[in-house]
Design a protein around this nucleic acid. Structure first.
Lengths: 189, 189
DNA sequence: CCAGTTTGTAAGCAGCTGCTTACAACGCTA
DNA sequence: TAGCGTTGTAAGCAGCTGCTTACAAACTGG
């Protein structure tokens, strides 16, 4: 545990370099989306040479895949189903949150290829869990609609920045949305 | 000598060329988003030289602005407030719809600059109308949340293509969403 | 201590990007 | 018909993109 702040802290450490690239990529993909993030920017932010990015990940798309795979499912695995929606909502609303998967997802909506498949995959896992919350025959559809609301709120807040939603108190948003979701999931008409 | 019936219908028609560029741009921006659409592709689809694009619109961003300005507000102006949500929802759900503003909006979420300002503007106008539907003190916030749901559904259907929502019957979706929206807008606790 | 592998660096490649310039073809009008 | 502004075309520019190559520096096992 000797972390000395040396001038060149790590000089030869493939694992640390790989991690630095992952962190930098996660940050930039979330902020700018896939298309507008360049491999040069990622490497620069990570303090690494850009050719290492290709050595460790193969391609920009593969790096994107690695980022999503790392960050997308932590919260999902750690949250009981009946609280997944409100937990995701709250964590999405908090200003200093660490889960950037949704933001990355949204800002990369225009991209195709591997990125699209991954986006579908993450969404599918969320919806599967949400679908267990209702016994309606169209549970999956209702779950998708709940997920869509989550993503729409994130889109308007984070990407569009529209007021008053963007600056609203998370608790107010939760209260309003959860009543609507309750109706959506409980009604079995 | 020069008695050939013109093979290309319009040989010199600035207005028609401008329109062709607008149509082509609208189609491609909706399908690929701002970043992944190139001026060369737009010009090619329009059957025009790409330098004309810059002569008539000045820049790629200005062309984007022109596309949004043309297509974004027709439905808004033609729909009474109390039906705006369901009308927008239905028109968004119909397979052969012509309003591509929302799709363009979503696929260009990553872009900054003028595009961002326009996206905010269109959203603001929708939300203003929706806000008249409830007399709750936080009417604007509730309207934003309704708008966010609309956009989230469009995102999941059009961009992500997630099942079962992407392939669901529009009437089923309307019924489910409208009950949730009703709760959202009517509750004054 | 030296061969061989791993890690890091610098340079460059081919292709694409938005945009500009120079110029030719057209058609109106005087 | 001559002049001139408008419309269309072809070529090219500078900069950026993802990715590759050639090579040097550091570490490791023998």
């Amino acid at each position: 545990m000797t972390e000395q702040p040396e001038p060149a802290a790590r000089r030869r450490d493939a694992a640390a370099t790989r991690l630095a690239l992952l962190d930098a990529a996660e940050k930039l993909f979330a902020e700018r989306g896939f298309d507008r993030t360049t491999v040069r920017d990622i490497a620069k932010l990570a303090g690494a040479n850009q050719s290492l990015l290709f050595r460790y990940f193969g391609s920009k798309e593969a790096l994107f895949e690695a980022v999503i795979a790392r960050s997308g499912r932590e919260q999902l695995a750690a949250t009981p189903p009946e609280r997944l929606f409100s937990t995701s909502l709250r964590s999405m609303l908090e200003p200093g949150r660490q889960n950037r998967a949704l933001e990355t997802y949204l800002r990369s909506s225009g991209s195709d290829g591997v990125a699209a498949a991954i986006r579908q995959e993450v969404g599918r896992e969320y919806a599967e869990v949400l679908a267990t919350l209702t016994d309606a025959p169209d549970a999956e559809l209702r779950a998708d609609l709940a997920l869509a609301w989550l993503m729409g709120i994130a889109l308007v807040r984070e990407v569009t920045g529209k007021e008053p939603l963007a600056g609203a108190d998370p608790e107010d948003i939760c209260r309003l949305v959860l009543t609507g979701i309750k109706t959506l999931l409980e009604r079995s008409e």
